[in-house]
């Protein structure tokens, strides 16, 4: 890996030229939507720039694929969340947010939290969300999930550990 700086912007440029077309195809095959494809290709390079590290030339393809794959999965996850949010709004119309901007902010926050949680088994996920978002006591969580109080503590610990692993992915 080489740090990206103004000095090697040429290499980034070159990498873009060289890999742009197959990367588009790679993403396109997984999305079947040309507009979103173009967005994701841009986003892939943007991630590369914000990570600030340029892979060795021989690793470029693998590295770009890795980023792109993550973005495609993120997109599906986001759609999943939007769908769940919409369904909930239908059931609870009083929750309908005042503006599309506010809805977008909510979905964004949901996506961010969801990214931390996606590896968790259901009970651990629920226990953490109850404690973390609604400050429920372990006793109340235990009652709602029909498990023991000591299991709640174990699930919460496990969930925190998993979230932190995801958050620190780059450092572990």
């Amino acid at each position: 890996m080489v740090a990206i700086s103004l000095a090697n912007m040429d290499s980034v440029d070159f990498m873009y030229q060289e890999h742009h077309s197959w990367l588009s195809l790679y993403i396109q095959r997984r999305l079947s939507c040309p507009e979103v494809t173009a967005d994701l290709v841009q986003e892939t390079y943007l991630r590369l720039l914000t990570r600030g590290q340029l892979p060795e030339k021989k690793d470029s393809r693998r590295y770009l694929t890795h980023i792109a794959k993550g973005l495609v999965i993120d997109l599906y996850r986001r759609r999943n969340i939007e769908a769940a949010y919409l369904e909930l709004l239908e059931v609870e119309p009083e929750k309908v947010a005042s503006s599309p901007e506010y809805q977008a902010i909510i979905v964004e926050a949901l996506v961010e939290i969801d990214a931390l949680l996606h590896r968790l088994p259901n009970k651990a996920r629920q226990a953490l969300l109850m404690r973390q978002l609604e400050y429920m006591s372990y006793k109340d969580i235990a009652a709602e999930l029909k498990i023991s109080v000591s299991s709640v503590e174990k699930y919460v610990a496990k969930a925190l550990q998993s979230c932190l692993m995801v958050a620190l992915e780059d450092l572990i």
Partner: peptide, 20 residues
């Protein structure tokens, strides 16, 4: 990150639902 979510109750419902 958790403290900053706009509507905690709604967030929990959607996140539990979306995973199921």
């Amino acid at each position: 990150k958790f403290n900053n979510v706009p509507d905690p109750q709604l967030t929990r419902k959607v996140l539990v639902k979306s995973s199921q």
